[in-house]
Amino acid sequence: MSNGLSKIKNEDFAILERIKQAEETALAELYDQYSPVLYGIAMRVLRSISDAEDILQDVFLQLWNKPDSYQSFGISIGSWLVINTRSRAVAKMLSKGVRHQPHQIDLNNITFFSAEHLPQNEFQSKVIDAFKKITPDQQRILTLICHEGFTIDDVAQILKVTTEQVHKRITEGLRIL
């Protein structure tokens, strides 16, 4: 699968060079492209508009002020932004001492793709189809992390498994996808 988030490295390199030249339009382009996804990630973890906005500001300004901090691990800027946003959001949530309540989650009522969430394009349609191929347990883990914003520890607690088991199931699930 490929999508708009995973840009080819040449494009990422070009936009990174423009950011290093302090071209505001480059940052604006990145923002327009990634902010909806990143904001969704931050909101799912923090569940606070102001905190989510702060996280987005921190992430984009980090890239703007220290473009070298984007280390190419063979991943796109988009992926780097996703990882950075998610890990910052979790760190902020933990620092504030505000945790979601894992025991309150009803596993029967969570789903990654809800019934009303119809695929908006062929690409999403493929993702939904691929998601059906992984086990229900793997689906739950990805849903709890991506959709519900839980941490690995929370997921382990909810599913009553170890964090290593959660790691393993994530890896297995992503490999299938």
Partner: peptide, 19 residues
Amino acid sequence: AKFTEISDVLYKSLPQFHV
């Protein structure tokens, strides 16, 4: 690299929030 592509897809497939 492979997993980040999938991760990006998953996150992008989620219902969006209004920014």
